[in-house]
Simulated scan of single mutants.
Amino acid sequence: MSKILIIEDDVSIGEMMSIYLYEDGYEVKRAENGRQGEALFREFQPDMIILDLMLPDMDGIHLCTTIRHTSNIPILMVSAKNEVSDRVKGLQTGADDYLCKPFSMRELSARIQALLRRSNTFTQQSLSSTDVLKQQGIQLDFEKRCLYVDGKNIETTFSEFEIMKLFWQNQGRVYSREELLNRVRGFDSQVTERAIDVHIANLRKKVEDDPKEPKHIKTVWGVGYKFLFT
């Protein structure tokens, strides 16, 4: 049974999500503010977090950043703010998906299933030593889901690692934003293809010597992106 932590200060929305997900077969705990959410994150050790952007005691962006310092757990951010800039900010902070209020419980369930399915697949797989790959100072460990650059462990979000893994396994292949989005999300997402640009920008900062002049993660103008070793 997967464990889901809901950090949502709106009582009616929080209870609705809790009841629906409990009936869907999840073990659910809910926090009504950021501090309580932090405590439950450590104690409950959830498999996924649903995080409201606006909390009474702290900004959801700040809490997302804090969680990302210690964990790559899938994070679904929810908010009444539906501006593109808000969605982009949430993704830049480390959220794996962004859902605008109001939303249906069926859509919430679909998003959760997609994120957990990919997370559980890679956690449960028994991978051989050949899945630790290293080239030109970049190392990718599929089993531990770790990215190393020049021997240093680089923190990545769930989505960033998925994109990097896809690139690594298919070097030189050009992927459109839509293809990358489908790979990461598994379903249509309100965050649109702009989310991929955010993830690519973040990855370039982490693996490139000069993100403005990338040697590995190349833009193919009018199409998308590809990954190369020079």
Rank of each mutant, 00 (worst) to 15 (best):
Lys29Met: 13
Ala31Gln: 08
Glu32Gly: 01
Gly34Gln: 08
Gly37Ile: 07
Gly37Trp: 07
Gly37Thr: 08
Glu38Lys: 15
Ala39Trp: 06
Ala39Ser: 13
Phe41Asp: 12
Phe41Ala: 14
Arg42Tyr: 10
Pro46Trp: 06
Met48Asp: 12
Ile50Ala: 00
Ile50Gln: 10
Leu51Thr: 06
Asp52Cys: 14
Asp52Lys: 12
Leu53Lys: 11
Met54Arg: 15
Pro56Tyr: 00
Pro56Cys: 11
Met58Phe: 05
Ile61Gly: 01
Ile61Asp: 08
Ile61Val: 14
Cys64Glu: 00
Cys64Gln: 05
Thr65Phe: 04
Thr66Phe: 05
Ile67Asn: 08
His69Pro: 00
Thr70Gln: 11
Ser71Asp: 14
Asn72Ala: 14
Asn72Gln: 11
Ile73Gln: 06
Pro74Phe: 02
Pro74His: 06
Ile75Tyr: 07
Leu76Phe: 05
Leu76Tyr: 07
Met77Ser: 05
Val78Ser: 06
Val78Glu: 04
Val78His: 06
Val78Pro: 07
Ser79Ala: 09
Ser79Glu: 03
Ala80Gly: 14
Ala80Val: 09
Lys81Thr: 02
Lys81Gly: 02
Asn82Phe: 03
Glu83Thr: 12
Val84His: 05
Ser85Ile: 13
Lys89Tyr: 01
Leu91Asp: 10
Thr93Trp: 03
Gly94Leu: 07
Ala95Arg: 02
Asp96Pro: 03
Asp97Glu: 13
Leu99Cys: 08
Cys100Pro: 08
Cys100Asp: 06
Pro102Cys: 08
Phe103Leu: 08
Ser104Leu: 03
Met105Asn: 10
Glu107His: 09
Ser109His: 15
Ala110Tyr: 03
Ala110Leu: 14
Ala110Arg: 04
Ile112Arg: 07
Gln113Trp: 05
Gln113Asp: 11
Leu116Arg: 11
Leu116Ile: 07
Arg118Thr: 12
Arg118Pro: 03
Asn120Asp: 15
Thr123Phe: 05
Thr123Met: 11
Gln124Ala: 15
Gln125Cys: 11
Gln125Glu: 14
Ser128Thr: 15
Thr130Tyr: 10
Asp131Gly: 02
Leu133Glu: 10
Gln136Met: 11
Gln136Ser: 13
Gly137Pro: 02
Gly137Phe: 03
Cys146Ala: 13
Leu147Lys: 08
Tyr148Ile: 01
Asp150Arg: 11
Gly151Glu: 01
Gly151Asp: 10
Lys152Pro: 00
Asn153Gln: 13
Asn153Val: 04
Ile154Asp: 03
Thr156Gly: 01
Thr156Cys: 13
Thr157Ser: 15
Glu160Ser: 00
Phe161Gln: 01
Met164Ser: 04
